[in-house]
Amino acid sequence: MDQTLAPSPAAPPLAEEGELTRLHPNYTHAVRLRTTLAAIPFLLAALVAEAISGDAGLLPPGVIGGPVLLVALALIIRVPMRRYSARGYQMSADRLRVVKGLLWRSDTVVPFGRVQHIDVNQGPLERFFGIATMTLHTAGNHNASVKLPGLGEELAREMREDIRAHIRRESM
């Protein structure tokens, strides 16, 4: 298999057993946008609460809205970046390794010989940013589907073809 996925030189030293390949940089943006959309209702609620308590003179202004805004900003700006650098994958001749998680780290390896079928999915946000999620399905109950989000669209298809070629070769 010709490897076109050169490990990015900026990969952090979280690789214990080999260099991890980073995701597409747009992954960060996609996560940011998703978090922003999810945060809007909370920000609106905070605004309303702020207005009500301001009218009643219960709390000094900013006591509710301030913290909510701070948390939202942290979740939108800082966390996706950390998440991006925590994620990574490593594709070798016969297996795929997926690393993820900020606090709860998980490091999964799926040998291609055990892949039942492969999905490449794109949500509307992902399509906008030109990235895709590849999902490997195995027969095991744990890790029945291993997701690898944030791959470049082209790359995801290439990887799928590579894995499929491997499966076909093996089962003949």
């Binding site: 390896v109 095991g140 744990h142 890790n143």
Partner: peptide, 25 residues
């Protein structure tokens, strides 16, 4: 077996141990 996962929570990472989940049909 179908897959191997090494999972670590924050404490586990700090203290140097992990849970191994093996994919079993």
């Amino acid at each position: 077996l179908h897959s191997v996962e090494i999972a670590q929570g924050p404490i586990a990472r700090w203290r140097g141990y992990a849970t191994i989940h093996l994919g079993l049909a």
